[in-house]
Amino acid sequence: MTISESGASAVFGALADPTRRRLLSAIAEQPATATELAGDLPISRQAVVKHLSALADAGLLERERAGREVRYRVTPAPLSDAVSWIAEVGAQWDARLASLARTLDAGNRS
């Protein structure tokens, strides 16, 4: 298992929850604190903090101090996992297809 694949797995887990997707979407538009986010949602600030922690643990959010609060912003870093997945799995398919072309080419020439 490569690091990039397990990282992608953490991202999927964090995004499996609709509330977390909504929070992430809101923060992607504008960095915000848990209090600000809780004001827009029918859930407690405490619940928002829990969701934000899950998103941050997956590497999707970064924290920064904002006075006595913590402001969250989206970090694009783990999304590069998608790119490495494309590269890695794509290379595997290229190798399979090249070997298939060789096999069938040889088979039909002899």
């Binding site: 999927f12 997707r21 992430l24 979407s25 992607a28 694009p76 999304l79």
Partner: peptide, 10 residues
């Protein structure tokens, strides 16, 4: 899901 939340992928 990543597209769903509208995050641009690098």
């Amino acid at each position: 899901l990543l597209d769903l939340v509208g995050i641009p992928l690098p």
